[in-house]
């Protein structure tokens, strides 16, 4: 058996290895290049008090979550109970970004499903969302005291994922400094 005739087999097995590994990956998940970078600054109106404004700079010195949601977003409803619980327990401040939504619809949604947010910023045209590279709702960003994005989650948060990944990061970031 000459070595050169084994080349196709070796190439194929390497390929199969990658394919096997690929089965475990989710091709639809796109990591954000913003992780590790300062969160884009924005200053917009608040949902419940349209005359008042919310600025990302207000959150300086705190570890917080920015949760992008909308009343038309079906999968947002999946993670909503978890967010309500987080809000009640006061684990971490959760700022909502109401994305491409109508004010009345959004308020109605909160009445029906509960309001987990400390503040809600409104982004009717999706301009803030665009700066954060939002391409689907819900999306959740973890931002540290210096205003740097530490983590991004696409799709509904699950309790398991929150406890396993986000919670340790939040504890760690809150302790440091």
């Amino acid at each position: 058996m000459k070595a050169k005739f084994l080349v196709p087999l070796v190439i194929f097995l390497a390929l199969a290895g990658f394919l096997a590994y690929g089965l475990k990956l989710n091709p639809r998940e796109v990591p954000s290049p913003l992780v590790g970078k300062p969160a884009p600054a924005f200053s917009v109106a608040q949902l419940q008090a349209p005359e008042a404004s919310f600025s990302s700079a207000d959150m300086r010195g705190q570890v917080w979550l920015l949760n992008v949601w909308a009343s038309w977003c079906v999968s947002c409803r999946q993670e909503h109970p978890l967010l309500v619980e987080l809000g009640r327990r006061g684990v971490v401040p959760v700022v909502g970004l109401n994305y491409k939504d109508g004010r009345a619809d959004a308020l109605d949604y909160l009445v029906r499903h509960g309001n987990p947010y400390t503040t809600i910023a409104v982004d009717p045209e999706g301009k803030v969302g665009f700066d954060y590279g939002v391409y689907g709702t819900p999306e959740t960003f973890l931002i540290d005291r210096e205003g740097v994005i530490r983590y991004k989650h696409i799709g509904p948060l699950t309790r398991e994922h929150f406890e396993r990944v986000l919670m340790p990061m939040i504890t760690e970031l809150s302790r440091a400094g």
Binding site: V30, P31, S32, P33, L34, F130, G133, Y135
Partner: peptide, 8 residues
Amino acid sequence: LIARFGDF
């Protein structure tokens, strides 16, 4: 756009 959404 790459700065926001990545090379993808």
